[in-house]
Design a protein around this nucleic acid. Structure first.
Lengths: 150, 150
DNA sequence: TATTGTTATACTCTATAACTATA
DNA sequence: TATAGTTATAGAGTATAACAATA
């Protein structure tokens, strides 16, 4: 840029929260671009991946894990269900809850999308070595899940 | 939570981009809550802090640095200018560009808001030691500004 | 009474294009 | 012809409240 902001004087570049926001914006843009060819975005990809788990999540679980309002999860699951990628299954023990589980088509798409997402992440974090990426992953995990203790 | 998502089976918790998104969501929520008492949000706080620089940024600079569209910067600067926190000054050498510079009131508010934001960040990253936080800052800086080379 | 999923609604944020004034 | 700032607008994302079914 012709007239760059002085990155030394303001404390913004030393603000971890700001760096977090900017790094996330870059990774999100790269991730969404990579997932677009599969008809997915970061949100729907996350729901799809979580629905692969052996212990399938309820919509409430998804909302808590992804920090979304339950009403937003409805729309995300609707979109995936319409495409035949996930199914809603009533829980026999509590008929209020609905468990979200990936279909075979959903599992296949998730596998392909995972490759694309991995490539995008590779490019987004090209500035870091493998060791540094591992360190970043561990530190972020502890910040993102404060109560985990592990 | 009563029925937690299995955090081992899905690869989402090993996905740096996902951890980045969740860590950012937590830090953003904490930051916005802390800044609210000053009538600021993360966005407006960022503009205000950048306008403190000796080499005051143009609106174009702000847009690039914050990864916002120039039209969004207009609204942010409008809000701060209405409150008397920043001023738009025409650049004599190029009368198209407008430089954004904090007023004394803006500087004073920025100082108070900086304290609140720092406390929020302290709480948000309480899981990390001082050394670890410094490591996180360095790694994020390189991911957030890929072209910096140092 | 409390909780899960759902619907509806309003608000914010984001992206895009067009306009003006300067260069 | 190109660029900085501005305006307008539509779309996506987000937050909130209320509702039905079930516990």
């Amino acid at each position: 840029m012709a007239r760059p902001v002085d990155t030394a004087a303001p404390s913004l570049v030393d603000d971890v929260s700001f760096l977090l926001a900017r790094a996330n914006a870059l990774a999100l843009a790269a991730g969404n671009a990579a997932l677009a060819e599969h008809g997915l975005k970061a949100r729907s990809y996350s729901v799809l991946v979580l629905s692969l788990a052996a212990d399938a999540p309820t919509q409430r679980d998804l909302a808590e894990f992804l920090r979304l309002d339950p009403s937003q999860v409805v729309a995300l699951v609707d979109g995936l269900e319409t495409r035949g990628l996930v199914e809603r299954r009533a829980d026999p023990s509590d008929r209020r809850v609905k468990v979200v589980v990936a279909t075979p088509a959903g599992r296949a798409l998730a596998a392909r999308a995972h490759v694309s997402a991995g490539e995008a992440e590779e490019r987004a974090h090209a500035a870091l070595s493998a060791d540094e990426r591992e360190t970043l992953r561990d530190l972020l995990r502890r910040v993102a899940f404060p109560g985990a203790d592990g």
